[in-house]
Design a protein around this nucleic acid. Structure first.
Lengths: 256, 256
DNA sequence: AAATAATGGTTCAAATAATGAACCGACCAC
DNA sequence: GTGGTCGGTTCATTATTTGAACCATTATTT
């Protein structure tokens, strides 16, 4: 692994649940030597990618990341555009709604709205979602580049529950349904007892950029509710797509 | 420079004005060899820190940065807390209001609100502000750790305009005034014809975390307007500080 | 339409930077 | 005290990064 990759994988050890980590802890989890870990942290700190708490000496993600993320957001206002619509959708459905963006080979959760229910689906910002076994993933794949789809479907796929589809043919069928319907449905494919619907947010070229999804406990979810949510999530995703691409929705037809 | 430092300095070449850059361009600006540059970009792309446009093959900042920034924001909701108050302040003053956070040795602009005026002070997200020659910088230094102040004042300081204060004594005096007043004033210290006021956002330990500032063309700015804005920016910064620290404002007294 | 000069990307011996076992001092619990 | 942490440092060994020269494409220019 390159040194750069190692440094970034240190950053990736931080999460919403564990936003501050000590040197030894980071070394242990990353598998790097303590000296190596520290060397990397110092390099990262020198550019504000991590900060060190002056009291505990623990490390946390730094302001340099916020800076770059804001620069990115200024050119590509994904959050700014989508979050209000995600909020509306959350108010409408009264279930967990999450927004994700494609990165490398997975979907990255960048925003979540939780309902007031005690029994709800909990999702953390920063969570990474596999493409083949989530409603978001299927919705994404339905409008992804062929190369992305191929990369996803070749090789063996993890089964997270007994319901996870792991055969390429079954997943392709699911993608096809999502494409026709305008939204995907994933019934406990990633976590037992959770049913989700999702729709793709698409770029000016018609390919998917990310997704909006509604996740709910299966116990209180009727087929009618699924259909209703599906239409709502489809509408929301379409609206985000249009706002992102300056209203020229005609390009949103897939150029097969 | 460490490899990690090189990779990060590649990321820092991107800005709001130039959010997409080609390989040769990046190599030229960074001063790294083309092969080195590409190697670094590939490593960064592998973790979603940069993405490559499939058409132009140009590189841009990637979703991985958004992810980490959002994880950071979840633990330390600086933007979420401050932006609404920055907006209110912009509506009130009808001048450019910007929010910044300390990083490494400078202030990082993380949010900006511009007024509708044609003649206004323009600031980009991501802009880095020096501590000694901006209203934000002085406001920050007024409540910074002694080590930070010392690090800033030792060594020679750049004069950006004929008005820039570059003697440690003068800057210290300016800091003292800011501390008493609750806000700093910087009269053309960074850019000719621009006058700004700023106040520090402070953490639970009483030390500054960042600043809120109002910047306006000097031509249309009266002494009375400065005083008024000063109080407004002070109030806004105090409010952000309190919300960030869970209302326990008593800790906000400086523990000399 | 041929020539030129960009571009993005690749290769491999040479040079440089990363590595990690052992070490230190500080702190904490027993 | 003693043993176990912790954060941090050192330096000979080792592995990775480096960059000149290279190719294939894609604009420009002549």
């Amino acid at each position: 692994m390159s040194t750069v990759g190692k440094a970034i994988s240190l950053l990736e050890l931080f999460s919403v649940d564990e936003p501050e980590l000590g040197l030894s802890d980071l070394a242990r989890r990353s598998g790097f030597d303590k000296a190596t870990t520290r060397r990397l942290l110092v390099a990262l700190a020198g550019h504000g990618f991590v900060e060190q708490d002056t009291g505990t000496r623990h490390y946390r993600l730094g302001a340099g990341l916020s800076r770059l993320a804001r620069i990115r957001e200024a050119r590509f206002p994904f959050l700014q555009t989508a979050v209000p619509l995600v909020r509306d959708l959350a108010a409408l459905t009264v279930e967990t709604v999450h927004l994700s963006e494609f990165g490398v080979d997975r979907l990255v959760t960048v925003h979540v709205e939780h309902p007031a229910w005690a029994n709800r689906v909990n999702i953390d910002i920063g969570q990474l979602l596999p493409l083949h076994s989530t409603a978001s993933g299927i919705a994404y794949l339905a409008f992804a580049r062929d190369e992305t789809v191929k990369a996803c479907l070749t090789g063996s796929l993890d089964a997270f529950t007994a319901h996870t589809l792991i055969e390429a043919a079954a997943i392709s069928r699911s993608m096809g349904e999502a494409r026709e319907r305008g939204y995907s449905i994933c019934d406990q494919g990633y976590e037992e007892g959770v049913i989700s619907v999702a729709a793709a947010i698409r770029g000016a070229d018609g390919f998917a950029l990310g997704t909006i999804a509604v996740a709910a406990p299966k116990a209180r979810t009727t087929a009618a509710a699924i259909a209703e949510r599906g239409l709502a999530v489809r509408t929301a995703a379409r609206e985000v797509s249009m706002r992102l691409n300056g209203e020229n929705l005609q390009i949103l037809r897939r150029q097969a």
